[in-house]
């Protein structure tokens, strides 16, 4: 039992892929689902390769990914800025919290149709929708984390004669950064959702629009291939956030790993 578990732990990625592949092909061969909707794995890979070689998918992907990435960066910066603002005054903090309570439950898709009229179909629309839904996790985590910085650290800073703003920039913000990054990681997923949904609803380009077009053309193997691409983009975006996190808060990770 234990040896089997170790084996599984070691090779879980290939095992998982093998399992999914096997079940997929079994369902395909059993013919429970019409072939039109459920292409075999080789067909999907073929479709992916075809779209890759004629270049359409690459331009669409770059457009989508850049939108998500730039939106995420803007939203994260704005979120941290809002968190710092809330830290400065309790009134401001309360006020921003009201706004976030009101706006947070609204899904990105709901903004799109109205924003199309108010902002047009271009970059402004994407910027507005992405930032409006992506800004909240970094902001909320930032507020909590800035509050939760240990008084020992703050007092140490004060003892060294740091001013209030120095304590904020050199002590509290770095201490809050790990938790802010947890929010940014969550925001990365949301930003990708927002981009793809906006492209589906209002787009003329990008992966979201492409998926939608393929569905109406009943090209199911293309749709599956694009879905796979979307999942990979999610992994890539998360990876970039993790990289930045390691660069900025590596000290925290090393501290957590070090045994007492």
């Amino acid at each position: 039992m234990n040896a089997a578990l170790q084996f599984a732990e070691r090779f879980r990625v290939p095992l998982c892929l093998l399992l999914v592949f096997g079940i997929w092909q079994a369902v395909h061969l059993a013919g429970v689902v019409p072939e039109k909707f459920f292409p075999s794995m080789p067909e999907i890979v073929g479709a992916f390769w075809r779209m890759l070689s004629d270049g359409t998918v690459i331009t669409a992907w770059v457009t989508t990914f850049l939108r998500a990435l730039i939106g995420l960066i803007a939203a994260a910066s704005l979120g941290i800025a809002l968190a710092i603002l809330s830290d400065l005054s309790p009134v401001l903090s309360r006020g921003i919290r009201y706004v976030s309570d009101i706006l947070q439950p609204i899904p990105p898709a709901a903004f799109v149709p109205m924003a199309v009229f108010m902002l047009g179909l271009g970059t402004k629309l994407y910027a507005f929708v992405i930032i409006l839904v992506t800004v909240w996790p970094p902001y909320l985590n930032g507020v909590t984390a800035l509050q939760a910085v240990s008084p020992v650290q703050v007092n140490t800073g004060r003892m060294f004669g740091l001013s209030r703003s120095q304590i904020l920039w050199q002590v509290r913000l770095p201490a809050a950064l790990p938790e802010i990054f947890t929010g940014i990681r969550y925001a990365a997923t949301i930003s990708l959702i927002a981009v793809i949904v906006s492209e589906m609803l209002a787009g003329r380009d990008g992966i979201g629009f492409m998926i939608y077009k393929k569905v109406y053309a009943m090209r199911s193997s293309d749709v599956f291939a694009l879905m796979f691409l979307v999942a990979c983009s999610g992994v890539l975006l998360n990876g970039l956030v993790a990289l930045l996190r390691r660069a900025l808060t590596g000290w925290h990770m090393r501290m957590m790993e070090r045994p007492e």
């Binding site: 599984a8 990708l192 959702i193 879905m227 999942a231 999610g234």
Partner: peptide, 18 residues
């Protein structure tokens, strides 16, 4: 253990995309 990579993968796939 075997299925956790699948869960990680699905977690990054935005639900509206399906």
């Amino acid at each position: 253990v075997i299925l956790s990579p699948l869960m990680d993968m699905l977690a990054t796939l935005p639900p509206p995309a399906i």
